[in-house]
Simulated assay, not measured.
Amino acid sequence: MSSPNVETSTDRVGKYQLMTAIIMFEIGSTPMFLLGIKAGQNAWMAMAVGAVAGLLVLVPCLYLQRLTGDTDWTEMLLQRLGKWAGGLVALFYALLLAYESMRNVRDFGEMANGTILPQTPKWVIMIVITTIACYAVRKGIFVLFRTIELFFPTVVMSYTTLVLFFFISDLPSVHRLRPILDKGIGQVLGEALPELISFPFGQVFVFLLFWKYVKSGTGFVRTSLAAYGVVSLFLTIMSVLTLSILGADVAQVVAYPFLEAVQLIHIADFLERLDIFVTLIIFLGLFVKLAVFYLASNLMVSRMTGLPERTCGWFLGIVIFAASFLEPSQTFHIWLGLKVQVKYVWIFQMLMPILILALTLISKRRGQASC
């Protein structure tokens, strides 16, 4: 079985590129939704708990990558489960990653159609973004990660500016965050687990497809943990801000709480209506997320079939675009993703890597014993 084209490259992913990729990927469109809102004004605590629990996905994945060295998730599955069982599991993961990419394509189309491009047919928006992602994926991991690196300063400056504007407009109020834990810690844990592990924190498992391409000596473990810490802190702060501006009652009934909060910014009778600005930032996050999932799925399909990545990229792009129309409505799309999928996908994000890690440890110990 021939290896993907990317392995022939002498180029490697740098420390800063890895950090920006993890941060941009994990953030994605998450700030737009106030996750854990059923916990009311304690939703920010649910986000923090989810971030800590997400380490149960990240740490085993990092340990597994350190043990296996220059291999990716597809190779790990084939080595530990065998050609047929490992191949079937790898195929499932390739489809799961393509499905996750499809969800972001659908999110992109729905959000663009409902905000800045209401007169444009949704399918036109979705085919354009899928084509752009396909082009980036066919260029390979190094081009995509460099592109994300270029996006990063713009996103950082934009979110920093918005937070500053919130305070200049005197919108946050600590009173909207009270009472704290009025229904006990159980409500917070119930909202955080397992949903917030599955999305967004557990999705970091996808980097099992990319860590092998990081430059040696860059400390990918420390870099990944640092990036994850930044994401956790950022998402928790954004939850606090959104709740302190809107309050739990309003945040529970609007479709996009963060966008609603941004629309309240009003400075000196001339700076207002920044919702288009923040929508563009979210679009960058959505593109990064759909492209990373797309690339990860493409790498797995290419390795399993032996076909060139560029060939697989076109085929997979057609599948992702076509599948984005399978869900009959936006309501169904959100229900399936945020109510159903999140209850089960953590199994594949956490338990399977832990299983492969256990098999790897057993194999290494047997190898040492035989020596």
Rank of each mutant, 00 (worst) to 15 (best):
A53R: 03
A48E: 09
G87D: 04
Q41Y: 13
A46G: 06
D70A: 11
I37L: 10
G87W: 06
M76Q: 03
T71R: 14
R66Q: 15
M45W: 08
W84P: 03
T74L: 04
Q65K: 12
A43E: 08
G87S: 03
G54E: 10
L56A: 10
R80S: 09
V59T: 06
G87H: 01
L96A: 13
V89M: 12
T71G: 08
M47P: 14
L88W: 15
A39S: 14
L88P: 12
L64S: 04
L62S: 02
G86L: 09
V57Q: 03
L97P: 02
G82C: 02
N42R: 15
E75V: 07
T68S: 09
W84N: 02
L58D: 00
R80E: 14
Y63E: 02
V49S: 01
G82T: 00
G50P: 10
R80A: 07
D70V: 04
A53S: 11
T71C: 14
G50H: 06
M76N: 11
L95Q: 00
F33Q: 00
T71F: 15
G69C: 10
A39L: 12
L35G: 00
L67M: 15
A48Q: 10
Y63K: 09
L62Q: 03
L95E: 05
W84T: 02
I37W: 09
M76Y: 08
L55D: 01
P31I: 05
A90S: 15
L78T: 01
W73N: 07
T30N: 11
A46D: 06
A94Y: 04
L97Q: 05
G82E: 03
W73T: 01
L64A: 03
F92Q: 05
M47V: 08
T71D: 11
N42Q: 07
A51N: 09
G69N: 06
V49I: 01
P60S: 02
G69R: 05
M45Q: 06
L56T: 02
L95M: 08
T68G: 12
Q41S: 15
G82N: 02
A85G: 14
L56K: 11
T74R: 00
W44L: 07
Y93N: 02
G54I: 04
A53I: 10
G87V: 02
V49A: 01
L34A: 04
L91D: 03
L64V: 02
L91M: 12
L96Y: 14
G86W: 13
A43K: 10
C61V: 05
A90K: 05
D72I: 00
G36S: 14
G82R: 02
R80L: 12
R66H: 15
M45Y: 08
A85H: 14
W44V: 00
L64F: 14
W44G: 00
L62N: 01
L64W: 13
A51S: 08
G86P: 08
A46E: 08
G54W: 12
V89S: 01
P31A: 05
L35N: 01
L64Q: 06
C61M: 11
G86N: 05
A85R: 13
